[in-house]
Design a protein around this nucleic acid. Structure first.
Length: 774
DNA sequence: GCTAAGGAGCTACCG
DNA sequence: ACCGGTAGCTCCTTAGCG
């Protein structure tokens, strides 16, 4: 029979010592199905040297674990080569076999053995997750799984052209874990509550064993396709599994009997379901500095629940106030679900484009998302997949940044090259497979030669990157055109917007990818040449602007800021396009804009009245709220006040008023917290610094502080270095705060940053410091 | 012995 | 576990002073 399904997830298992691919799908009429394939044999490729392919294949066939070999042709960085395809029956042995083959003196190298079995399967069969497929199957009667049907795959897959999702069953969950002291410890602290939200909401409290088994039961009866959480990959899943074990329960939440288990990219897999930790997507929200569930929900316009601190939860628990705890958890499980709704469309599109299952693509870092996309494209071109190599990092020169003209300017136009790096790569055919090593002689007219660095790339044939990027860029263009014709807020619009964003992310990361030493296609000259052409491009654009008599105020990598003169700017855009064959756009116009002496920092007022702050303290997460807010207010005043002197006067008044409030203790403690990330383990720090010292104090008090965590601290009164008088914020009350420090070292620098370019030398306000005394 | 200058270390930003 | 360019803080060492 033919089965048509939407591809949710894939994994491989061993059944009776034989590898089995398991594909989890959903049919048009809402049946959950499991498709099995035991017939697939994994393989890799070996390039022979100094020996005929026949002979090499014969010798390789004799190696233990090799099922069979075949001679075929592939491309190796664009060059056609004879290769031996080596099939290995047991997926667990493929690495070993490849290692043995690599060591044979007639083998130049092995390729593709480090591609996971399930990925090999998808590539070979021409399928990818999060899309619709049709395949010939037979019913499998002797197997058990929690689905509506189990089938053996007996035919080839056919892509079905459907552009919508099946009816997915989606649930969210939220756990309340409370540490007796410090961070909750699965060895000691029981699970207090779990909230689930599927087609109804439940909060399980009481006996831990009951909580956990209710959770398992809920999942098995609701049977979700997607499970949303916030932070569960790092914390909850492992905690729950361990607490379940302590209670003699098996946390059986998959579609076959299984516990959640750690898989690639720090991801936790739940067999047959897509486990999506929304914290992974929150990482992309760079505007949210502290990625708490509450902050992310607020940012996404979902409202903000009451902030409840750890110690408040602990007090609720001690008082036996289970109702408050349940309410806390229930509010959050709703938010998790709503955040999930905001991301699901994007996640599906990303999964389709990258070709990784929904749950994997969510947790994969940008570099791997790009890489899997490239792998799929490369295989389509008959390319071998390079192995990751251990290479040492070599730096190269990047983008060009202009020193700004400090001060306040009016009517400034920002001109941006559209997707500059990707377009430069396409234009010059920059790619690992078109790169010409220095020792190779190629006629100059057949090469594109990078400025400054001199790297050469073949003009023909089109390289891997060129084709990939051309596809992405044109797909994006088409989507943008379609978007303009579709009604906003419609389902179609959402889908297109999500797809457009997913494509943009991949295209823009390709340049960074090729200069990443962990990349399979790492090649420094590729990155270096792209950056060099970028500098050339922006330099040329500025030259043209100058010749036209336009005043250049600033520029960074792919943008130039010029005094806005409509006629000249339009002409400039045309001229640049003509001369450089790259698209440049008038991106925005600032009515007024302030630059300091520093690069990458400015604040401007746009025509629609919004204010854009770039690089300054206001957008930095490691400055306390009191200083950030003050700077924002001062920016608002001086940008919107027509008369600069009036603006300065009002700003000074505002700051003076704020300082009085600070001294009077009217500013809440929260506004004094400085958040900084702990980026490495304690031993690795060479310097004594406030946040490092605070992390140490927290650890002593039973908190788990790991690399990647942010610690919040406050500088308190006392003597000595800052690191000697910084404390975790929860150990401080507002009377302890060193207000002087915050005035002199936080608020004043932040506001002066904006005011000094306007000629303000000092605030002339009573700061309470030594200056006042004299 | 004190201080200003400058460098090292660090984090978070821009495009 | 995408890149390089950049600012600006805190801590710490050292050159310069006399």
């Amino acid at each position: 029979m033919k089965l048509s399904f939407w591809f949710l997830d894939i994994n491989t298992e061993k059944e009776d010592n034989r590898p089995e691919v398991q594909i989890w799908g959903i049919t048009e009429d809402g049946k959950r199905v499991l498709l099995l394939d035991r017939g697939f044999v994994g393989s890799f490729f070996a390039i022979p040297r100094n020996l005929s392919p026949d002979e090499a294949a014969r010798k390789i066939s004799a190696i233990k674990g090799v099922e069979k070999t075949e001679i075929t042709r592939r491309k190796h960085l664009g060059k056609e080569v004879d290769v031996i395809r080596v099939y290995v029956k047991d997926p667990d042995e493929i690495d070993e076999v490849a290692k043995r083959v690599s060591k044979m003196e007639f083998v130049e190298g092995c390729y593709g053995h480090d591609i996971r079995y399930s990925m090999q399967y998808m590539f070979e069969k021409g399928i990818s997750p999060s899309g619709w497929f049709e395949v010939e199957v037979e019913e499998e009667k002797n197997r058990n799984a929690r689905v509506d049907g189990i089938f053996r795959i007996i035919g080839d897959f056919k892509r079905v052209d459907k552009n919508y999702l099946p009816g997915l069953r989606i649930m969210a969950f939220h756990c309340v874990l409370i540490g007796e002291k410090g961070s909750p410890d699965p060895e000691r602290d029981p699970v207090i509550a779990i909230s689930v939200l599927g087609d109804d909401v439940r909060t399980f409290t009481g006996e831990e064993k009951e909580i956990l088994s209710s959770f398992v039961n809920y999942i098995s009866s609701f049977d979700p396709d997607i499970i949303f959480s916030y932070g569960a990959n790092k914390r909850d899943w492992d905690y729950l599994v361990r607490r379940a074990k302590a209670n003699g329960i098996y946390l059986d939440v998959g579609r076959v009997k299984s516990e959640p288990h750690t898989s690639v990219y720090g991801h936790v897999s739940v067999t047959g379901r897509a486990n999506i930790d929304l914290m992974d997507f929150a990482e992309d929200l760079y505007e949210v500095k502290l990625k708490t569930l509450e902050n992310v929900a607020e940012y996404l316009g979902l409202g903000r629940p009451d902030d409840i601190e750890e110690h408040e939860l602990r007090e609720m628990k001690e008082k036996g106030d289970i109702d408050s705890i349940a309410e806390f958890s229930r509010r959050r499980v709703y938010l998790i679900r709503e955040i999930g709704d905001k991301f699901i469309e994007y996640a599906v599109q990303l999964s389709q484009i990258v070709g990784l299952p929904l749950d994997h693509v969510a947790s994969a870092a940008v570099g791997f998302r790009v890489e899997w996309f490239i792998i799929r494209e490369a295989l389509g071109r008959g390319e071998l997949i390079p192995q990751r190599k251990e290479v040492s990092a070599e730096t190269y020169v990047g983008g060009m940044v202009l020193s700004p003209r400090p001060g306040i300017h009016s009517n400034v136009a920002v001109l941006d090259f559209a997707s500059m790096y990707p377009n430069i790569m396409v234009l010059n055919n920059i790619s690992p497979d078109t790169y010409i090593p220095p020792d190779e002689e190629v006629p100059q007219e057949e090469c594109n030669i990078a400025p400054e660095v001199g790297h050469r790339f073949r003009k023909e044939p089109p390289g891997l990157y060129k084709e990939i990027l051309r596809k992405l860029l044109s797909a994006r263009k088409e989507i943008k055109e379609a978007l303009a014709k579709v009604e906003e807020n419609s389902a179609e619009h959402k889908l297109l917007a999500a797809r457009e964003k997913a494509i943009k992310v991949i295209a823009n990361a390709t340049y960074g990818y090729c200069g990443w030493i962990g990349a399979r296609w790492y090649m420094k000259p590729v990155a270096e040449a792209t950056a060099a052409w970028g500098r050339y491009t922006i330099g040329k654009a500025m030259e043209i602007a100058r010749k036209m008599g336009l005043e250049i105020i600033y520029g960074d990598t792919d943008s130039i800021f010029v005094k806005y003169d409509t006629g000249k700017v339009n002409k400039l855009l045309e001229e640049i396009k003509r001369e450089l064959s790259l698209d440049i756009k008038l991106e925005r116009i600032f009515k007024r804009i302030i630059f300091t002496e520093a690069k990458k920092r400015y604040a401007g007022l746009l025509e629609d009245g919004t204010i854009d702050v770039v690089g300054l303290e206001f957008v930095r997460g490691d400055w306390p709220k009191v200083a950030r807010d003050a700077q924002k207010k001062v920016i608002e005043i001086v940008l919107t006040e027509e008369n600069v002197e009036n603006g300065i006067r009002r700003a000074k008044e505002y700051v003076s008023d704020l300082i009085s409030k600070m001294k009077a203790g009217e500013i809440p403690l929260k506004h004094y917290i400085i958040w900084k990330e702990i980026t490495k383990s304690a031993e690795e720090y060479k310097a004594r610094a406030p946040h490092v010292e605070v992390a140490r104090i927290m650890r002593e008090k039973g908190w788990r502080v790991q690399p990647g965590d942010k610690v919040g601290y406050v500088v308190v009164k006392g003597s000595g270095k800052l690191y000697q008088r910084s404390l975790p914020y929860f150990m401080v009350s507002v009377e302890d705060v060193d207000i002087e420090y915050y005035i002199e070292n936080q608020v004043i620098p932040a506001v002066m940053r904006v005011l000094s370019p306007l000629g303000v030398k000092e605030l002339g306000v009573a700061t309470g410091g030594l200056a006042d005394f004299f």
